[in-house]
C-alpha cells in the first residue's frame, strides 16, 4: 500500500488519540496531532500542534478558525477525526472549509489512488466503499479500527497561535456526566433488552439471567436514548456498539437491521419475543415465542441449577 505524504489526527479523548495516531503512522509518511487541553497527554505522532487549554472561556469549538487556518497552511492529505460528537462537528467544519465532504464512520481505511474507506449504510444493511480524491480528505473514524499505540512523546511540539472566532457561542456552564465504563465490545456473552420491557424494574429479569450465565447486559437504542434506562455505552448497533460476542440473547427486541448488525458476527443468537412474526426469529439460532415475564424467571432458574 502506498503512503500519503502527511496525515493529521484530530482527537479530543486520549484513547481515540492513541488509536488514530497508530492509524496515521500506517497511512502516512509524516504524522501530526492537533490537540487542545492537557498538553502532557498529547503524543504518538511526529508533530503535535497544540492549540491551548480548554475552559468555559474557550471550548473546543472556539478553536475552529485556528484549526482551519492550520489545515489550510499545512495541507495534510488526510485528517483522521475521532467520531465523538465534537469530533463530528469539527470534521464537518474542516471539510466545508476545505471544499470537500466527509468520509463518515470509516470502519476500514486504505490508500489506493486516493483514500478508500468502508462504512455501513442503510442501517447496516450494506457496506459502502467510497474513494476520496480531495487534496485534503477528512474522515471520521469508528473506535477500535486501529490498535492504540503507546504514546511516545512527539519529537516536535508546535504552539499554534489562537485566532479568535466570531463571538456567537458563549459557554455558560460545563458539567461532567457520571458515565458508566463498560466495554461491550469485549464481552463474550451478551443479554440484550429491548422495548418489550415496560419498566426499569423489569430489566432485573434480564440482569438475573445475565448473572446466571456470566453475560454483560446490553440494549437497543430506544432503551438507552429514549427511555434512558441504560447508559448509552450499552446500546448495540450501527450507531452504538459493534459487538462481537460468542453468544447473544435478544429479549423483547424486534430485530431491526440497525440493531442486529451490531451482533451479526455472534456464533449463536437466541431470541425471546412474544410476537411470532418478529424479524429477530429469522436471524436467530434458537428462539422462543413467549412473554419475557414468563420465560426469563423460569429460564434463569433452570440455568442456575
Amino acid at each position: 500500500m502506498s503512503k500519503l505524504a502527511k496525515v493529521f489526527v484530530f482527537a479530543e479523548h486520549v484513547d481515540a488519540m492513541r488509536e488514530l495516531a497508530q492509524g496515521a503512522a500506517q497511512l502516512g509518511e509524516t504524522t501530526a496531532l492537533i490537540w487542545a487541553g492537557d498538553k502532557s497527554q498529547a503524543g504518538g505522532t511526529d508533530t503535535v500542534y497544540y492549540l491551548g487549554e480548554l475552559s468555559n472561556e474557550r471550548i473546543l469549538e472556539h478553536y475552529a478558525p485556528t484549526i482551519i487556518n492550520l489545515i489550510k497552511t499545512e495541507q495534510p492529505s488526510l485528517v483522521l477525526v475521532e467520531s465523538s460528537r465534537k469530533g463530528r462537528l469539527m470534521a464537518g467544519i474542516i471539510a466545508a472549509a476545505m471544499g470537500t465532504s466527509v468520509l463518515a464512520d470509516a470502519a476500514q481505511i486504505t490508500v489506493d489512488n486516493g483514500v478508500v474507506t468502508q462504512r455501513m449504510v442503510y442501517g447496516g444493511a450494506a457496506l459502502s466503499t467510497e474513494r476520496s480524491t480531495a487534496p485534503t480528505t477528512v474522515a471520521t473514524v469508528s473506535a477500535g479500527i486501529f490498535e492504540a499505540t503507546d504514546t511516545g512523546k512527539a519529537a516536535n511540539l508546535v504552539e499554534v497561535p489562537f485566532i479568535a472566532p466570531a463571538p456567537t457561542v458563549k459557554c455558560l456552564e460545563r458539567k461532567i456526566k457520571a458515565g458508566e465504563s463498560v466495554n461491550l465490545r469485549a464481552a463474550k456473552r451478551i443479554v440484550a433488552v429491548g422495548r418489550g420491557f415496560t419498566s426499569p424494574e423489569e430489566l432485573q429479569l434480564a440482569e438475573q439471567l445475565a448473572a446466571a450465565i456470566g453475560a454483560e447486559v446490553g440494549c437497543t437504542r430506544p432503551i438507552a436514548e429514549e427511555e434512558k434506562w441504560m447508559d448509552k455505552a450499552r446500546y448495540i448497533g450501527v450507531s452504538g456498539v459493534m459487538a462481537k460476542p460468542e453468544l447473544y440473547i435478544g429479549i423483547g427486541i424486534s430485530g431491526q437491521v440497525q440493531h442486529m448488525v451490531g451482533v451479526s458476527s455472534a456464533r449463536t443468537i437466541i431470541a425471546i419475543n412474544s410476537d411470532k412474526n418478529a424479524m429477530i426469529f429469522n436471524q436467530c439460532d434458537y428462539g422462543i415465542v413467549g412473554d419475557l415475564k414468563t420465560v426469563l424467571p423460569a429460564l434463569t432458574a433452570k440455568l442456575s441449577k
Partner: peptide, 22 residues
C-alpha cells in the same frame, strides 16, 4: 467523493429453531 460499491455483507446461516409458546 466517489462511491465505488454498496453491497450487502454476506449473511451468516442461522439454525432458526423457534419454539412456539412459553
Amino acid at each position: 467523493i466517489e462511491v465505488i460499491s454498496t453491497l450487502a455483507p454476506p449473511k451468516a446461516e442461522r439454525k432458526q429453531i423457534v419454539l412456539e409458546g412459553d
